[in-house]
């Protein structure tokens, strides 16, 4: 007797035994919960795709200077499609990418199988780094600099779209914000 919308008929309901269907389901579910928790931690050692959460507070001026220094040092050519500068920093080096309304700059040229320290930050509002077609996504903030050690495992042309709404009008905006990474063999 009883319903879910009337008080429990047994005044001492906590001491009622649990029926077998429920009990077994709780055991199975809880075991899976523990597994998922452990697996997420374990992936930091057994997996190759993790964030190291290395980050710094910065300012737009300081970060923009790093991007400009990189442009001065490693610019190799103008991009055929857009005419923007393409930089090719040496493997293992720090690579600075800046999101702004509404582009990612500069265009990067990397080598397959080499590791780079990719820095991400924003000049104005919150942006999202979204590497396509790999579909790797990070957040980019003004005033913060995030560092991810990336190792491209494929060569080709990769696009960076914006994953975080960053304003816009008809002609341009969040939906036109793009950047590019070339990965050479």
């Amino acid at each position: 007797m009883g319903t879910s919308y009337t008080p429990p008929t047994n005044p001492d309901w906590w001491r009622e035994p649990i029926e077998r269907t429920e009990l077994l389901w709780i055991v199975i579910s809880f075991a899976w919960c523990l597994f998922m928790f452990g697996w997420m931690i374990a992936w930091h050692w057994i997996g190759n795709q993790n964030m190291n959460n290395e980050a710094y507070k910065t300012t737009v001026e300081v970060y923009t200077k790093k991007v400009d220094d990189q442009l001065a040092k490693y610019t190799v050519r103008k991009d055929e499609a857009s005419g923007d500068d393409v930089v090719a920093p040496p493997p293992g080096s720090d690579v600075y990418l800046l999101g702004m309304q509404w582009q990612w700059r500069p265009i990067l040229e990397l080598k397959k199988g080499q590791t780079y320290r990719l820095h991400l930050s924003s000049k104005d509002v919150v942006h999202g780094f979204s590497l396509q077609p790999e579909n790797i996504n990070f957040q980019a903030y003004p005033g913060y600099e995030q560092v991810i050690n990336i190792t491209p495992n494929k060569s080709g042309t990769f696009s960076i779209a914006c994953g975080e709404y960053c304003g816009g009008v008809d002609a341009m905006g969040h939906h036109t914000m793009l950047g590019r990474i070339y990965v050479k063999e």
């Binding site: 998922m36 997420m40 992936w43 997996g47 795709q49 993790n50 964030m51 999202g128 979204s130 790999e134 579909n135 790797i136 996504n137 990070f138 957040q139 994953g163 975080e164």
Partner: peptide
């Protein structure tokens, strides 16, 4: 909502 899976899903 797995910490790592999120990277290939976040904001898509």
């Amino acid at each position: 909502s797995v910490e790592q899976i999120n990277m290939i899903i976040h904001n898509t």
